[in-house]
Structures are given as structure tokens and as C-alpha cells.
Design a protein around this nucleic acid. Structure first.
Lengths: 216, 216
DNA sequence: GGCGTTGTTATGCAAGCGTATAAATAGCGC
DNA sequence: GCGCTATTTATACGCTTGCATAACAACGCC
């Protein structure tokens, strides 16, 4: 009880600590950008000291990568749930998919800031780049498969090239609306973006409205 | 002629130097990301020494901001040109607008990286946020006006709400395809994205194809 | 052609970065 | 309870960063 006492601490399970560090990293990136996500800041937020990071990750870059993967998994989680509505009407699943991607928690400034922070480094970080490409192509493939089901359900045939173009366009609409919603969410009414998204996707696929369209 | 000789140099005009420094900054960001754009790296590429940067800019942040502005000006330049094709067929102008936004130099990974770097800080920087919002709404208004012209040219009437929804959706398609092109440009054939963009926009607006569509 | 202005270089500094390493202690088996 | 071990802290090192400053030299002026 004289000189600066050594700090008390608790030993946590490995998985728990890793998750805490990843969470702290995401918080830091979201609040202060990649530049502000230093090992010291991350450790402070996680309630540990900086050295511990290197006990769980080979280096800071690895922690960032893990955080990015976690983020992506979280973002696609909801969308995947919509896709996995086995047995449901393909058009309903497509609508659910679009809606899941255009509502919270996917549409969220913090998520967007995180995404932007990471995505800006994709082209100068090969590991991040391939991770992104896999994620993007996987996503697009799922959209493509869903589109194929929908068109089949409508009794329409479509070649591989057509399906791919549809998937690219639909993916673009979702991405674009997602950005608009994240950056300026307050100028859109709740559900407005999702509604525009669903309508746009159906229009792009040449689907007629389900209900209420008795005009003409 | 004994100790390390001092480096020779030429005096350049102020505007020229500023532009060179901005260009060097863009190059550095393009190649090494925001993180790699250090004052020393920028100066090296510009062919000057690091200290000179602070002779033309109050700080590094100001140089980055100037680079960002230059980039944005360059991006909107092409699009504006398409919009300003006075007298031309509205559909042609719309197509030109879409195409201008989905081809180089707008579609470019370095542009995207800078954009991402800045956009990620929008929610924590009020000045940046309002700047972005103004830019976005301005852009969308132009799209909306163009859409109104196109529909009028087709003899179709549309209310303000409908026009706005169209503008939002079209803006989203362009943004989404832009991202896809910037991040994974090499997996798309030249002009493929622009083609998808133009087709998508026309489909969204319910326009029939100009040529070649003799089916059904 | 010397001279002053100022664009430019060269050097240095303090702060912050990621990382390495050793000391300390919490928690478990016995 | 006692010691072992692995987790965690603490400290420090080397490097890079942005920024400050002083010396220098290119160019216009008279």
C-alpha cells in the first residue's frame, strides 16, 4: 500500500476476450474512424491494457480483419434469414430479403461508418480485398438463385446471362438505397426505403403487383 | 563540393504547386490508401520535400480535404455535362447521365477509396454531414427534374411523390452500380455496368426500348 | 550584378504508433 | 492452502508521423 498498486483484473475465457476485443474495435472504428482505432484506444474500451491484444491476435491487422468479418457476418445474417424461409413463396422471400436489407439494424449509421472505414482500404489490402470479393459474389449468387426461383414461379424462362444482370441490378438497388438510408435516414419515413426497394425490384423483374392494382 | 550538396529546385507558381500536391495526394491514396498517404509520401511523389506542404496548406487534413473536393468536382463534372445537353431528347440525356456516372473516371477505385474515407466520418463531422446532404439532395433533384422531362416527353403525367420515388430509386441504382464497378471493376466487361444501368433505369421508368424490341 | 524576397530544403522534435518483453497475479488442480 | 501456469499488466523500445524552424538558394527587381 505504497507505490502505484498494480491493477486488479479478472481472467476471462479466450472466446469471450476475443469477442470483447472485436466489439471494442468496432466501437472505436465507428466512433473515431480507422485512424482512431489504435491498440490503446481499443484496449481502453475493452477494459484491458494494450499488450493483451497481442496475446489474442498476432497483430493489430489481424484484429481489424476479424472485426471486419464479424461485421459482414452480422450484416448478412438478417438477409440470410429471409432467404432461408424455405417453402415460402419465392416472391415473398425476395420481398423479405429486400426488406431485411433496408431496415435497421442493417440500415444504421454506425454500421455504415464501419463499412466505409473498412471498404476504403479494400484496394490496398489484398486480404481484405479477397474477403470482400467472396462476400460480394456470394451475396450476388444468392440473389441470382432467388431471382431464378421467382421467375420460374412466374412461368418465365431466363438464361444465365439474364439472371446475372438481374442480380447485379437488384444488388445495386439494395446497396444504393442502403447507403441513402444510412447517411440520411431521417429524411425518409420509416419503411419508405424498404417500400421503394421492393417496388423497384419487382419492376426490374417485370412482376405485376400482388394486390391493389386494379387500375387500367 | 564536399559535404552532401543541397538539392536543386525550381520555383513554381502557387496554383501549380497546390495542384501538384493535390494530384500527388490522390495518387498516394489510390495506391496505398488513406493510411499510406503520409506527408512524406505525398511530397516524394510531388517531387518536393515534406515541409513544403505546410507552406501551401495549414495542415495535412486541409490537403486531404482539398483533394476530396477536387475529386468530387471531377466526378460531378461529367454528369453535369450530360445534364446540360440542352435541347437533346430527354431520354438521351438521361442515358448519357447514367452512362457518365458508370464509366471512368467516375468509376475508379481511387475515387472510391477517397470517397469511402471521407464518407465514413460523415456522422461524426457535422460540417461534412451537411455538405454531403446538400450534395446528395442536389443530385437527386437534378435526377428528379430529368425524370419529369422524360415522362412528360412520353406523354405521361406523374405527381411529385412519384417523381421523387423514381429519383430515389434511380439514384440508388447508379450508386450501387458505381460501387460494384469501383470495387470489382475487373469482373465486369467494359461498358457492361453502364449498359445494365441504362436498362435498369428505363425499366424503372417503364420506358420501352428504343430499338430492337420487336418481341411479343 | 548585387540584393532582397520568399519558395524550398534540411534538420529536428515531441507525440503517438505497433510491438516486444518481463514481472505480477488470478485461478485451477491437487 | 500451495504451487503451476497462463492470462494480464506494466514498461520500454524503435519507428513513423505531423509539424516547427532555420538555413539556403532561385528568381525578380533596380
Amino acid at each position: 500500500m505504497s507505490e502505484a498498486a498494480r491493477r486488479k483484473f479478472r481472467r476471462e475465457g479466450e472466446e469471450r476476450r476475443r469477442q470483447d476485443l472485436i466489439e471494442a474495435t468496432l466501437d472505436c472504428v465507428a466512433e473515431k474512424g480507422l485512424k482512431g482505432a489504435t491498440v490503446r484506444a481499443i484496449a481502453l474500451r475493452a477494459g484491458v491494457t494494450a499488450g493483451l491484444i497481442r496475446h489474442y491476435f498476432p497483430g493489430k491487422e489481424d484484429l481489424l480483419q476479424a472485426a471486419y468479418s464479424t461485421l459482414m457476418d452480422r450484416m448478412t445474417e438478417q438477409a440470410k434469414a429471409a432467404l432461408d424461409m424455405q417453402g415460402a413463396d419465392p416472391r415473398r422471400r425476395l420481398a423479405a430479403f429486400v426488406e431485411a436489407n433496408l431496415a435497421p439494424p442493417v440500415v444504421d449509421v454506425r454500421t455504415f461508418s464501419l463499412w466505409a472505414g473498412f471498404i476504403g482500404r479494400v484496394h490496398s489490402d489484398p486480404a481484405l480485398a479477397s474477403a470482400h470479393r467472396d462476400s460480394y459474389l456470394g451475396f450476388r449468387d444468392e440473389v441470382e438463385a432467388l431471382v431464378a426461383e421467382v421467375l420460374r414461379g412466374e412461368g418465365r424462362l431466363a438464361g444465365k446471362a439474364t439472371l446475372q444482370r438481374h442480380a447485379i441490378a437488384i444488388n445495386a438497388v439494395i446497396d444504393g438505397l442502403w447507403i441513402e438510408g444510412c447517411l440520411a435516414g431521417d429524411i425518409f419515413a420509416s419503411g419508405e426505403l424498404a417500400g421503394i426497394g421492393k417496388d423497384s425490384v419487382e419492376t426490374l423483374l417485370g412482376l405485376e403487383k400482388h394486390t391493389g392494382d386494379t387500375s387500367a
